[in-house]
Design a binder for these strands. Structure first.
Lengths: 205, 205
DNA sequence: TTATTGACTTTTTCTTTCAAATTTTCAATT
DNA sequence: AATTGAAAATTTGAAAGAAAAAGTCAATAA
């Protein structure tokens, strides 16, 4: 990693703290520059605009999460344990970086290309991880899926989407409480168990 | 049904057209009154406020949908067919009354009590319908669920939530297109099949 | 007593304006 | 290539006032 990349990484690291805590809207480039004791203009030397820096931060955190998930996955020898681990790690990161993840999804206006790219990338990476879990389970004979990637996609959409439904009833204005996160997590795990069970003898069609 | 109730029903019917097409925000009480050729004040004689009228419309449409679902359910003798039918009917109504259903979920500010009540009611009704499907399937020996209501809740949260995830990637500003609705529906059906399969030999715990 | 209304009040939303904050650019410097 | 200060361009936020919409009520008709 050359000097340029090192500095970039440093900026990302610092920006992460601000973005994770206050979200993109409540964080200014001036603040990030001040945190790093350098000029705002220099930030623009390393990142073309605020959104790109934000996207870089998002990518960084997501990859950190995936690396942690994969790490835990090494010791695991059955798919149920693996998927529940994925859900747990997801919950931990979502709670810690709520403002970060929230933004990308929440904006109703048009999404900048760079951000869209990162979100797509992150989504693909997560599907891949889960698809790999399914593939291994397939090999072990635990389940029987012809298309692990598709199954992963279905499961992730369902599991992640649950969040919106569970929170819908309650009046969740800002950041969900620990209890609300736990409720979501519990639901997601129940879904996971039934879903995996459903893959055991999936009908071929 | 006495005169009072008849008039109420007429108001609801007329209001439905406006709300379904323009949503609650873009529909005024004056417009509804004009449609009915009566005074705005009279609307307030029948409904305490705009939200209550909106809630009544929502309840009316939801019950219409559930009645249609149940009707179709009568001829069906297996759970998969039944659940797929539920998804189809849901799609049809969601497409037709998109602006209607969208509102309740979308408002980030606090939800008025009356609207919350109706949404809860509608949610409960749908859970009951699906739980009944599961119970019947249980009796037929198709599946094996100790808690059909809980299973229904999990499935509905997952299935409905999918919508948000599937639409997230794409830039869906306003009303989703037919294609997007179809994509969601396809996903939901795949989930349904795996989920039902997962209930066949559910682990007791 | 119930249904209905027009005129009224209150509340919310929209528009405009303007200053301040923030993002973004750039020529000059190390 | 890395860095900066200063300035331009853009976005945001507050204030104020107008317009629209929600909601009320005393009077009237049936």
């Amino acid at each position: 990693m050359d000097n340029h990349d090192k500095k970039r990484a440093l900026i990302i690291e610092t920006a992460t703290k601000r973005f994770a805590h206050f979200g993109i809207a409540k964080t200014t480039m001036t603040e990030i520059a001040k945190d790093l004791s350098l000029s705002k203009a220099l930030l623009y030397y390393y990142f073309p605009d605020k959104i790109s820096l934000y996207a870089a931060v998002l990518e960084h955190i997501a990859k950190k999460m995936f690396s942690k998930i994969k790490q835990g996955l090494q010791d695991m020898d059955n798919s149920e344990e693996a998927v529940l681990h994925l859900i747990d790690m997801r919950l931990a990161f979502t709670m810690k970086y709520y403002n970060l993840f929230d933004q990308g999804l929440n904006s109703l206006n048009e999404m900048p290309d760079e951000l869209a790219r990162v979100i797509q990338l992150v989504s693909d990476l997560e599907i891949k991880i889960l698809a790999d879990i399914f593939k291994k389970a397939n090999e072990r004979g635990e389940i029987l899926t012809e298309d692990p990637t598709q199954a992963a996609e279905i499961f992730l959409n369902a599991m992640i989407g649950m969040r919106f439904c569970v929170l819908k009833d309650k009046k969740v204005m800002f950041i969900p409480t620990k209890e609300e996160f736990d409720e979501i997590s519990k639901m997601q795990k129940k879904l996971a168990i039934i879903f995996l069970n459903g893959l055991r003898f999936q009908k071929q069609h």
